[in-house]
């Protein structure tokens, strides 16, 4: 490409990226830097701390209570992501294979829960999972249980509600990628005598991996930072780091400690997703090479 054209292309790209870069700089990088700075303040009340200390970080890692909550938060995030993947992939795939008009309407139905307030959704679940709620009534009438069970305020209940909240993100991520996979590829695999399972494993999954990765990342990040659901559905019996951070900042006014916990969650979440993506990408490349042989 000739140099003036190349310069022009770079300039256009920079111009197109500028609004997003400025937005991220102003509303992500600067606040995160502020949180980072606050986390090193030597104090335990609002932002009145001064100086520099790593005490908040040391306290977090030296107390097994906090590190165990961090661990459980990540485990919950992984479980929610996996359930969303198992439930969301077939839905996303089937939507992608529908004619455009039918797909549009069904996609709207998938998106619909996202338009509701989270508090409304959570209160809906409180009614469904309550001792006198719908689920207990159904189980009781079917003779599965002899008396109403406590379904709320348990870890499975928190995971169930998180799955319901974040499932649309997985479905939409898978849908957007699978629609790009030409159905002819599946027919070609079939002509080569690959059964449906082999086609799914060797053709669909590798090609849909970018969508799966995006979906998993989104669901995982949203799950580990959730704080309303663990508080209301978990009733403080199912602590997650997000709700602990909220408590530390909004109730205890201990902003430096809350900032340290938020930054730990940020870095750990970033590290985990980066490692997961790197691993998934390398597997994909390796898988591609094997298939190429």
């Amino acid at each position: 490409m000739n140099p003036p054209l190349e310069r022009n292309r770079k300039f256009t790209a920079a111009l197109l990226l500028a609004p997003m870069v400025l937005l991220l700089l102003g509303f992500l990088v600067v606040p995160v830097a502020g949180v980072l700075r606050s986390s090193f303040l030597d104090g335990d009340y609002l932002l009145e701390g001064t100086g520099f200390t790593v005490g908040h970080y040391l306290r977090f890692f030296s107390d097994s209570y906090y590190s165990s909550i961090l661990w459980e938060t990540f485990v919950d995030g992984v479980i929610v992501s996996l359930i969303c993947l198992v439930v969301g992939f077939p839905t996303g795939y089937s939507l992608a294979r529908l004619p455009p008009l039918a797909r549009r309407w069904r996609t709207i139905i998938v998106i619909l829960p996202l338009t509701l307030s989270l508090v409304v959704i959570v209160f809906g679940w409180l009614i469904i999972l309550g001792r006198n709620g719908l689920l207990n009534s159904v189980l009781f009438n079917l003779g599965i249980i002899s008396s109403p069970k406590t379904l709320l305020f348990t870890r499975p209940a928190v995971i169930l509600v998180l799955v319901q909240q974040f499932l649309p993100f997985m479905i939409l991520s898978v849908l957007s990628v699978v629609t790009q996979i030409d159905p002819v590829l599946e027919q070609a695999a079939s002509n080569l005598r690959a059964n449906r399972l082999v086609t799914f494993r060797r053709v669909i999954i590798p090609l849909a991996t970018p969508g799966i990765l995006v979906g998993c990342n989104l669901v995982f990040v949203l799950s580990i930072s959730a704080f309303i659901t663990p508080r209301l559905i978990g009733g403080n019996r199912v602590p997650m780091l997000g709700s602990l951070i909220y408590e530390r900042i909004m109730s205890e006014f201990n902003w430096p400690s809350g900032a340290a916990m938020a930054f730990i969650l940020f870095v750990a979440g970033l590290g985990f997703t980066a490692a997961f993506n790197a691993l998934a990408a390398s597997r994909l490349v390796m898988g591609g090479r094997l298939h190429a042989r």
């Binding site: 409180l126 009614i127 309550g130 001792r131 006198n132 709620g133 109403p148 406590t150 709320l152 305020f153 508080r231 209301l232 978990g234 009733g235 403080n236 019996r237």
Partner: peptide, 19 residues
């Protein structure tokens, strides 16, 4: 303890629902 109430409204609901 079944749960810690995040608000008095939530606690009333627990009584009403028989939790």
């Amino acid at each position: 303890i079944v749960a810690l109430g995040q608000s008095t409204v939530a606690m009333i609901q627990m009584f009403e629902n028989g939790e």
